[in-house]
Design a protein around this nucleic acid. Structure first.
Length: 683
DNA sequence: ATGACCAATTGA
DNA sequence: CAATTGGTCATG
């Protein structure tokens, strides 16, 4: 142990035993022994150490030297000596005495007196860790952004006075049933909870801004969560229009460490109470939180990829319960989880009147079934049914832009046998074949081998078809057909946020659709069968969400053409613009199949032996089913084993608890780690 | 994680 | 008998 570096000055009421002992052990008699006095008020700091081990996920007590009495405040970052090394920690509270029987080590250093971990966020991190069978240290890494020292030295700008125009909030929401009541309740200081399925064409950023303004008018704060930076920018602008500038901040990793920390501090210091941000914004330490809102909660960007993999909507619900704030789960589409909130009566439904939907758009489905492709020569030569072309042509003629949504990005798409549709695979390595240009033969996308003389392994046919055209290829084809029209693409790395009001064709992949200034005259949804081809629990829900999000961008009187099978129920839900009905049917099916959200699920994956071990050790609730284990491959391609656990929803907490216990046990015994995911998004 | 400790196992 | 290994426990 080394000498402590802090100075001591004041007359000391009490010596810190840990230090005295450390001095004594050194064996040399120091000429001038450094003795450090403990703080006279609340000399004990309870801290959470930044070690993501399950069995260390509890507060530890440290002695507070007098020199740190004023800076080691609850919420401050400190350094402590723990198990022989210096680790980062947060002070969660200061108390008069400790239950700990041994000697307390002194805090090594107060990194910063800035209270970045508020008691409410500390409590939230605990409930999130419990829910997801993870550790608080992991949750805190998501909740508290990294410190930026220069930024911290700057004071936060105080919030300017607000000239309220609150009546406007109620007007903005009056079109939808229960909409006005929701914002009026907010403005009156109540905490209503709602699931809102927006009408196509709704300026939802404006609506969210008005809801935030209503909460703000009641003297409370609001957090608005959106999937990505593009949406955040839209809501940011809407908040500026509604509240004026200087009343809100944005929170996302995109803005960079300094700006992100500056905005975080403005919130944590109470200088701002309204936040719009991406998934981590749900942890923002907003004072007097009045409203928590999430837009498009089905977007997979809300599933945190880092342990313990919490979902923004679920964190939001936990937080709303704890802080008694209002909740708005919103989107054009509706997730089954949102539907569940309605079936239990936890939230009320805000919906547009049917007439408003009918007035806004017309959705029709045009066949790209094999039979129709045969009959429609246009569709055969270009893979666009005639009606899709017609919609584009009339849309452009009416003077507006047209959106074409195509399922996958990139020029090259993988190939299948033209006749039997068996995916075309490389003869050498089994990788998928693709075409990268019209001049070259198909080649393997893994090993690059060219296959000029391909023949199908199943039926021997020599022809290939591209099951999907990527967005670049689609744009190219459209450019050849509509020679005088500008064709723009938006996908992957190159996402357009907005397009103007002039006639143009915009080809975009799902989630990358730019907003058109005055709305699109027409929206064409290509290859809808592809989105429905996955064997995922959420296939239908996800497909409908993507289509609705694109279709909602039409202008009033817009045309939506979906290329697909008209008998497909998911497409029928789109035609009727019936997100609620679809979610209700989906909910019923999931309930009878014992799938979430009617059941709570969890997966355990890792080395086969370890997974087996966990299953035997696990004290899961009686009603838990254990499915598997099955062999799987993890992301590095190493073989692993995975089990799926399923329990009735009312036993969900018990399931999480048992998983948490087994994790604590295993981490204490240094056993092979296993990955536990509660409510994994893609099952 | 890291280190300490104890007990059982292994090797000369 | 010493050296090594493995399990358990505590970390304030």
């Amino acid at each position: 142990m080394t000498h402590p570096t802090y100075d001591d000055s004041a007359a000391q009421p009490e010596l810190l035993p840990g230090l005295v002992r450390a001095q004594a052990r050194r064996g040399r008699a120091p000429a001038k022994q450094k003795e450090v006095a403990a703080a006279s008020v609340d000399p004990v700091a309870r801290v959470l150490v930044d070690i993501p081990l399950a069995h260390l996920d509890r507060p530890f007590d440290y002695a507070v030297p007098e020199s740190m009495a004023a800076t080691a405040v609850p919420g401050a970052r400190v350094k402590v000596r723990f198990a022989g090394q210096d680790v980062d920690a947060f002070v969660v509270s200061r108390v008069a005495s400790s239950d700990h029987t041994g000697r307390l080590q002194p805090l090594r250093r107060v990194v910063s007196a800035e209270p970045v971990l508020s008691p409410k966020i500390a409590a939230l991190s605990e409930s999130v860790a419990r829910r997801y069978a993870g550790s608080r240290a992991d949750v805190l890494r998501l909740a508290v952004p990294p410190r930026h020292a220069t930024t911290e030295k700057q004071p936060s700008e105080p919030e300017p006075a607000l000239e309220a125009g609150l009546d406007r909030a109620s007007v903005a929401w009056s079109d939808d049933t229960h909409g006005a009541a929701f914002v009026e309740g907010l403005a009156d200081g109540r905490s209503p909870r709602a699931v809102w399925s927006a009408a196509p064409g709704t300026d939802w950023p404006e609506r969210l801004a008005h809801a935030a303004a209503a909460a703000h008018a009641s003297g409370r704060g609001a957090i608005l969560c959106v999937p990505d930076g593009k949406d955040m920018a839209r809501v940011d602008r809407a908040l500026t229009r509604v509240l004026g500038s200087g009343h809100h901040v944005t929170l996302s990793a995109e803005s960079g460490p300094s700006a992100r920390y500056r905005d975080f501090l403005a919130i944590s210091r109470g200088a701002r109470r309204v936040v719009v941000g991406t998934r981590a914004a749900v942890f923002a330490p907003v004072h007097d939180l009045g409203l928590l809102a999430i837009w498009d909660d089905g977007d997979d960007l809300y599933a945190e990829p880092r342990a313990p993999y919490p979902h923004t909507r679920e964190v939001m619900l936990l937080r709303a319960e704890a802080e008694n704030s209002a909740v708005l789960v919103a989107g054009f589409a509706r997730t089954v989880e949102a539907e569940y909130l309605l079936t239990t009566g936890w939230a009320v439904e805000i919906t547009p009147p049917r007439q408003a939907i009918r007035d806004h758009l017309t959705v029709s489905v045009t066949g790209a079934t094999d039979r129709e492709l045969e009959r429609d020569p246009m569709a055969r030569s270009t893979r666009f049914p005639a009606r899709a072309f017609e919609a584009i042509r009339t849309g452009l003629a009416s003077g507006g832009p047209v959106l074409v949504q195509t399922p996958r990005a990139g020029y090259a798409a993988s190939l299948a046998c033209e006749r039997c549709r068996t995916p075309a695979r490389c003869a050498t390595c089994q990788g998928p074949l693709r075409i990268t240009s019209n001049e070259r033969p198909p080649s393997c996308s893994w090993c690059g081998t060219d296959h000029p003389g391909f023949s199908c392994t199943t039926c021997g046919h020599r022809g290939l078809r591209a099951p999907v055209r990527g967005d670049a290829r689609t744009a190219e084809e459209l450019g050849r057909t509509f020679t005088s029209t500008v064709v723009r693409t938006s996908s992957g790395e190159r996402v357009l946020s907005e397009v103007g009001d002039k006639p143009a064709i915009v080809v975009a992949t799902p989630g990358a659709e730019p907003v058109a200034e005055g709305g699109y005259a027409a929206v064409v949804l290509l290859d809808t069968w592809l989105a429905l081809g996955r064997l995922d629990l959420r296939t239908g829900e996800e497909a409908l969400r993507r289509w609705m999000n694109a279709a909602a961008l039409t202008r009033r009187g817009g045309q939506v053409i979906a290329v697909g099978d008209p008998a497909e129920p998911t497409l029928q839900a789109l035609v009727r613009w019936d997100a609620g009905g679809f979610a209700r049917r989906e909910m019923a099916e999931r309930r009878s199949a014992h799938l979430p959200p009617a059941s709570r699920m969890a997966t355990i994956s890792g080395a086969p032996g370890a997974v087996d071990d966990v299953v035997t050790l696990l004290a899961a609730p009686e009603a838990t089913e254990v499915l598997g284990p099955i062999p799987v491959e993890n992301r590095e391609g190493t073989p692993e084993s995975r089990v799926v656990l399923r329990a009735p929803r009312q036993h969900g907490d018990a399931l999480s608890r048992s998983l948490g216990e087994v994790q604590r046990l295993r981490s204490a015994r240094k056993l092979d780690p296993v990955r536990v995911q509660v409510d994994p998004p893609g099952l």
